[in-house]
Simulated scan of single mutants.
Amino acid sequence: MSNPPTEFYSAERWQNWIDRIDDEEIDPEDESSARLLLNLQDDTAIAIAKIVSAYDDGELEGEAALEEIADVRNIVLDEVDIDDEEKLMLVDGVQTSLVCVFFAAEEYVANGPAEEASVSEYLRAAADAEAEEDLDAALGYAAQAGTLVIDGEELDMAVAEDLEYGLVTEWINGLDSLQSAMSDPEVVEEDE
């Protein structure tokens, strides 16, 4: 077994992104602001993709992989210290999108890819559960879809177009970052 990277993600790395968002004028309608938020999300998804890949390649045991995922989740989902309410909401949106990425990665490591349905069927089931206000079930279905994305199945973003905006569409956004990260786990440079 080769040694896995010692650190997949750090609190300092996350904080660097948060500081940038805090320092810059953020306008979600502006392309560079939107890109900054997307890079924040993609950077985290890449860390998760690397953990899952290390697990798949036998460089990390399941237990270690789950611990690494939990470490990243604890960093990213921790309360963010930004005074600007609008920026806080935007970061919260990124955090919300990533919730499903963490659950999907944990589910994948613990139980492998889901086998009962396709990515879009799971996501429709998630949307139905959200409509019935069963958010635990919604997250469960979305995470199942995520295990398939990790396994290489295609997430067709058209599925999100048919859904009412809500948590599931946010999670699909996160899974889209995960899909990109799985196919091209290049590090997003913080100074772009």
Score class of each variant (00 low, 15 high):
172 I>N: 00
141 Y>I: 02
113 P>V: 06
133 E>P: 04
79 E>G: 12
84 D>Y: 11
177 S>R: 02
142 A>T: 10
1 M>P: 11
192 E>W: 15
132 E>S: 08
120 S>Y: 05
165 Y>L: 11
109 V>L: 02
95 Q>P: 13
175 L>K: 02
157 M>R: 07
91 V>A: 09
43 D>G: 10
35 R>N: 11
67 E>S: 11
188 V>K: 08
131 A>I: 02
75 I>R: 14
57 D>W: 06
166 G>I: 07
86 E>K: 06
145 A>L: 01
71 D>F: 04
135 L>M: 13
70 A>L: 12
112 G>V: 08
174 G>C: 10
129 A>N: 00
65 A>Q: 07
61 E>V: 02
38 L>W: 01
77 L>C: 08
48 I>C: 08
112 G>Q: 08
17 W>A: 04
168 V>W: 09
112 G>W: 12
14 W>E: 14
183 S>N: 12
165 Y>G: 01
76 V>S: 04
27 D>T: 05
189 E>I: 06
94 V>P: 07
66 L>E: 10
159 V>L: 04
136 D>Q: 12
168 V>T: 10
50 K>T: 08
180 S>M: 14
92 D>M: 15
60 L>C: 03
34 A>R: 09
121 E>H: 04
140 G>N: 12
82 I>A: 04
125 A>S: 13
148 L>W: 03
78 D>I: 05
167 L>I: 09
188 V>A: 06
72 V>T: 13
184 D>G: 15
86 E>G: 02
121 E>S: 07
144 Q>H: 04
164 E>A: 03
67 E>K: 03
11 A>G: 09
187 V>C: 05
105 A>R: 09
175 L>F: 11
103 F>M: 05
71 D>A: 06
125 A>C: 01
43 D>R: 03
7 E>I: 13
153 E>D: 15
147 T>K: 06
178 L>K: 01
48 I>G: 01
188 V>D: 10
126 A>E: 01
46 I>C: 08
169 T>Q: 00
191 D>G: 07
109 V>C: 04
47 A>G: 14
15 Q>R: 09
156 D>K: 12
125 A>V: 04
165 Y>K: 05
86 E>V: 11
51 I>Q: 10
137 A>P: 01
17 W>E: 14
178 L>P: 11
35 R>E: 13
18 I>P: 00
46 I>F: 09
153 E>F: 09
11 A>N: 11
158 A>L: 14
155 L>V: 00
97 S>R: 11
38 L>S: 12
5 P>Y: 08
